[in-house]
Design a protein around this nucleic acid. Structure first.
Length: 497
RNA sequence: GCACCGAUGGCGAAGUGGCUAACGCGCUGGUCUGCAAAACCAGUAUUCGCGGGUUCAAUUCCCGCUCGGUGCUCCA
């Protein structure tokens, strides 16, 4: 496949350099709060990448870090009167629950910063041995940027002005250059600290990722991913640290996912358009629709997240699910003129073409918009043939195969939505946040499937006796609680809206 | 302020130097239905932010402008 590489500024082939396994590192969450939809756009796009690679038969070794110590965590934990690990554990757990709700595959390796302090220390020691890392008067360690001439090659910034190492003491600490960044931070009074050969303190953010990536993937690996904001300084610093230590190319390929807008504006707490995944689930939006929306706009485009768009994706996902059900569960007629049995029907041909177009679109820099268009075109065509009585049992395999292929990457066809909504409501109840749930969502919660089925059956009975007033009453009551009843030739079906 | 990215129908968006500008939603009409809803089908941009240029030909390339976003500081 081909993928844009931030480092070269070009779309380039991507393949495992060892010919077997694609080794990739993706910056994970800092677990100080619940994840928001912006976070998840990045994780979802990385998921699309790894799912597509795997669907193409490429093995993936994906390492993701969890930053479970940083300034914010230390501040919040002490404000809550908790040990750092007690504070972060809750949000780390919530993060993985959110990934599960969104059908995001877990990485092969999960690396917590606090469990890799020795690797970070030894990396800093390697740099210190070359005088690239130096200790400041307060006990913090810094990276000497003037010693890495390529600094800026990822973010395309020009730092030649500071390469002379002119001493600029604008900081509270004694750095040799204002641009030099912290590798190891001396502890402040009362702060959690690790006692190491470097002295007491805690790791800087950037050294974390370098140390853990190199520990699990080697000095040099295939791909490094993250949100666009991480390009500078985080990833630039990772490159500087790692390549200074190893004298090898750190990551060959850099994958950056663009930020999203919410209702046309930057998402921020002050704008009032800041949403965690859980906020949306409490409002009754489905995880499948959120996944579909966040995936459908190619990763290099800014995505405008709107509630109208989310509602649209809910319908789009439902249409695909209905289509699969229809194809799978209907007993289609045998083809009348099977003839030589070699000719490919127009339906089968359309399905194969759709599958090929889908794969080609994703192979072309992960064009998810084009890929899903290929599937929807097949859906429309096959539905039309089915309505015309020209869909046959022998076409089924190709159509379902194309859908399976689609869903290995998009992962929206299997319906886990109600399950996650219920999970989120239970969580909200424990957290005392149930009042944030939409009334319709709460109403549905108290209705078990059996109760709904009983009402649906009662309505069918009422219809049979032509008691339409009672039938309509039940239908309206259920609708008010978010339950939709659908009558079809094959019987009555209901679902949670 | 400096640097970079984007601007396509009501909304979200794909795409291309010339063929009918994908796809989803919405809307309108139809099929189905006791009526609805759902489901399905069909129709729905003489036009790609504005101005100029290059070209036989530009939405697509170049320049300027306007607007939106991002980085330069924590941020997915």
């Amino acid at each position: 496949m081909h993928l844009f590489n931030t480092l070269s500024g070009q779309v380039e082939p991507l393949a495992p350099s060892d010919g077997a396994t694609l080794r990739m590192y993706a910056c994970g969450p800092t677990v100080y709060d619940y994840g928001h939809i912006g976070n998840f756009r990045t994780f979802l796009q990385v998921d699309v990448l790894r799912r597509f690679l795997r669907s193409q038969g490429i093995a993936v070794r994906h390492v993701m870090n969890v930053t479970d110590v940083d300034d914010k965590i230390i501040r919040n934990a002490s404000a809550a009167g908790l040990a750092i690990s007690d504070y972060t554990r809750k949000f780390e757990k919530a993060f993985f629950e959110d990934l599960d709700a969104l059908q995001v595959e877990h990485p092969e390796v999960l690396a917590r910063a606090t469990e890799h302090i020795p690797a970070m220390v030894s990396l800093i020691e390697r740099l210190a041995a070359q005088d690239i890392a130096y200790r400041a008067e307060d006990g913090s360690w810094y990276f000497r940027i003037a010693r890495f001439p390529e600094y800026g090659k990822l973010s395309k910034k020009d730092f030649t002005g500071i390469a002379d190492g002119a001493r600029i003491d604008v900081d509270e600490y004694e750095k040799d250059s204002a641009r030099d960044f912290a590798l190891w931070k001396a502890p402040k009074p009362g702060e959690h600290r690790w006692d190491t050969p470097l002295g007491p303190g805690r790791p800087g953010w950037h050294i974390e990722c370098s140390a853990m990536a190199m520990e699990y993937l080697g000095d040099s690996f295939d791909l490094h991913a993250g949100g666009e904001d991480l390009m500078f300084p985080h990833h630039e610093n990772e490159i500087a640290q790692s390549e200074s230590a190893s004298h090898r190319i750190f990551s060959r390929h850099w994958f950056h996912v663009r930020f999203l807008l919410v209702e046309g504006r930057k998402m921020s707490k002050s704008e009032g358009n800041f949403y965690t995944l859980r906020d949306l689930l409490l409002r009754g939006y489905k995880p499948s629709a959120i996944r579909m929306l966040l995936i459908s706009v190619p990763y290099r485009q800014q995505l405008n997240f709107t509630f109208e768009g989310l509602a649209a994706e809910t319908v789009a996902v439902e249409r695909l699910r209905t289509f699969r059900d229809r194809i799978e569960k209907t007993h289609w007629p045998q083809r009348p003129d099977a003839g030589d049995g070699l000719a490919v029907s127009d339906v089968a041909a359309a399905a194969r073409e759709s599958k090929a177009r889908f794969t080609a679109a994703l192979a072309d820099d992960l064009n998810t918009a084009e890929a899903r268009a290929a599937i929807f075109e097949m859906v429309r065509f096959v539905n039309a043939r089915a309505d015309a009585g020209a869909l046959f049992e022998s076409d089924k395999a190709d159509v379902l195969d194309a859908l399976r292929h689609f869903d290995r990457v998009f992962a929206v066809l299997d319906d886990h939505d109600a399950e996650w909504t219920r999970f989120t409501l239970n969580w909200a109840e424990r957290e005392g946040r149930l009042q944030e749930a939409a009334p319709e969502v709460l109403a549905t919660r108290d209705l078990s499937d059996a109760q709904i089925q009983a009402l649906v059956d009662e309505r069918s009975q009422a219809k049979r006796t032509r008691n339409f007033a009672r039938a309509d009453q039940i239908r309206n009551d259920l609708a008010a609680k978010g339950i939709l009843i659908e009558d079809s030739k094959d019987g009555v079906r209901w679902r949670r809206k």
